[in-house]
Simulated scan of single mutants.
Amino acid sequence: MIVLLPPSETKRDGGDARVALDWQRLSFPSLTSPRQAVTSAVIELASDTEASQRALGISAKQLFEVERNRMLLTAPVMPALERYTGVLFDGLDASSMTSDEVAFAHETVVVHSALFGPIGAGDLIPAYRLSHNSKVPGFPLKKHWRGVATQALSELGGLQLDLRSEAYAQLGTAAENSAYLRVVTAGADGKRVALSHFNKKSKGLFTRALVRAGIRHESVDSLVAWAGDAGFRLEHGAPGELDLVVDNA
């Protein structure tokens, strides 16, 4: 089973200063050329602070993000699972994982970056700023990534559990054997409503539990059965979808 996660706009600083971005060590080598193309465009954009601010949708207090992009090829790197911060990754809590759990996460978790496309959780990446809706001159990200990322994901075997936001899912379609997970709450009338505030936290906690269990589910039925035993309410939703039902509190 592969778990597809969205990235986070916020990134942790630092990393191994002795090592820089190495294209050959990233997962999905078929994406090297499109990765390099976007990265070159982002670095060029970073030479113009005002243009970068507009393209990235950042405030004057976030201009450090422009410097991050300018230094992409020489900045320190760390595993993607440690680089990303924010609500989902706080719930995933990579810092508390055992060595076996880290190894399992590196084998089964994929993060869909707007800059690098799909990458493995253990791939060494620098801090950067680029979102699915960033306006990079000459590189409409949805058009640039959708075909090549879809092809890369299609080459993965087994079940794919898609926890990406709809915006990031548009940058590449998961393989045919996939299930899109929605976080919902059920009202007194039984009607289910998608959550926003608790969405990312719930996805992080659910992924953490999957990694801790270390089970490679090959079917949705296996995943649903395990979830019930693990204390989660995971149910079949619309065709091709699963509902993670949580309390709205």
Rank of each mutant, 00 (worst) to 15 (best):
residue 3 V to A: 10
residue 5 L to W: 09
residue 8 S to G: 07
residue 9 E to L: 13
residue 9 E to A: 15
residue 11 K to P: 10
residue 17 A to H: 10
residue 18 R to F: 03
residue 23 W to N: 09
residue 23 W to F: 05
residue 24 Q to G: 15
residue 24 Q to A: 15
residue 24 Q to L: 12
residue 32 T to A: 14
residue 39 T to Y: 06
residue 40 S to H: 07
residue 46 A to L: 01
residue 48 D to R: 03
residue 49 T to K: 13
residue 52 S to D: 05
residue 53 Q to D: 12
residue 54 R to T: 14
residue 55 A to L: 01
residue 62 Q to N: 11
residue 69 N to D: 11
residue 70 R to S: 09
residue 72 L to K: 02
residue 75 A to W: 00
residue 78 M to G: 09
residue 79 P to C: 12
residue 80 A to Y: 12
residue 80 A to R: 11
residue 80 A to N: 13
residue 80 A to C: 11
residue 81 L to R: 14
residue 82 E to W: 05
residue 84 Y to F: 15
residue 84 Y to K: 09
residue 86 G to Y: 08
residue 87 V to C: 06
residue 92 L to K: 07
residue 93 D to V: 02
residue 95 S to M: 04
residue 96 S to L: 10
residue 98 T to M: 02
residue 98 T to V: 07
residue 99 S to N: 02
residue 100 D to C: 03
residue 103 A to N: 13
residue 104 F to A: 00
residue 106 H to V: 03
residue 107 E to F: 00
residue 111 V to S: 13
residue 112 H to N: 13
residue 117 G to E: 00
residue 118 P to A: 11
residue 118 P to Q: 03
residue 118 P to W: 04
residue 124 L to F: 00
residue 126 P to T: 00
residue 127 A to K: 09
residue 127 A to Y: 10
residue 129 R to S: 10
residue 129 R to F: 09
residue 133 N to H: 15
residue 133 N to K: 15
residue 136 V to G: 01
residue 136 V to Y: 03
residue 137 P to C: 01
residue 139 F to T: 02
residue 144 H to G: 08
residue 149 A to I: 04
residue 154 S to Y: 00
residue 156 L to C: 07
residue 157 G to M: 06
residue 158 G to M: 02
residue 160 Q to I: 05
residue 160 Q to W: 04
residue 166 E to F: 07
residue 167 A to V: 13
residue 169 A to D: 11
residue 170 Q to N: 14
residue 173 T to L: 10
residue 175 A to W: 07
residue 176 E to Q: 06
residue 177 N to V: 13
residue 179 A to T: 00
residue 184 V to W: 08
residue 186 A to T: 14
residue 187 G to I: 03
residue 188 A to Y: 05
residue 189 D to F: 02
residue 192 R to A: 07
residue 192 R to E: 11
residue 193 V to A: 14
residue 194 A to L: 04
residue 195 L to H: 06
residue 195 L to K: 10
residue 195 L to F: 03
residue 195 L to N: 09
residue 197 H to F: 09
residue 198 F to L: 14
residue 201 K to N: 13
residue 202 S to Y: 09
residue 206 F to D: 11
residue 206 F to P: 10
residue 207 T to I: 13
residue 210 L to V: 03
residue 211 V to D: 00
residue 213 A to E: 09
residue 214 G to N: 02
residue 215 I to Q: 06
residue 216 R to I: 03
residue 218 E to F: 06
residue 219 S to C: 02
residue 219 S to L: 01
residue 220 V to H: 03
residue 221 D to Y: 06
residue 222 S to F: 00
residue 223 L to F: 13
residue 223 L to G: 04
residue 224 V to M: 08
residue 227 A to T: 01
residue 230 A to M: 01
residue 230 A to T: 01
residue 237 G to F: 04
residue 240 G to R: 12
residue 242 L to S: 09
residue 242 L to P: 12
residue 246 V to Q: 08
residue 247 D to G: 05
residue 248 N to M: 06
residue 248 N to K: 14
residue 249 A to W: 13
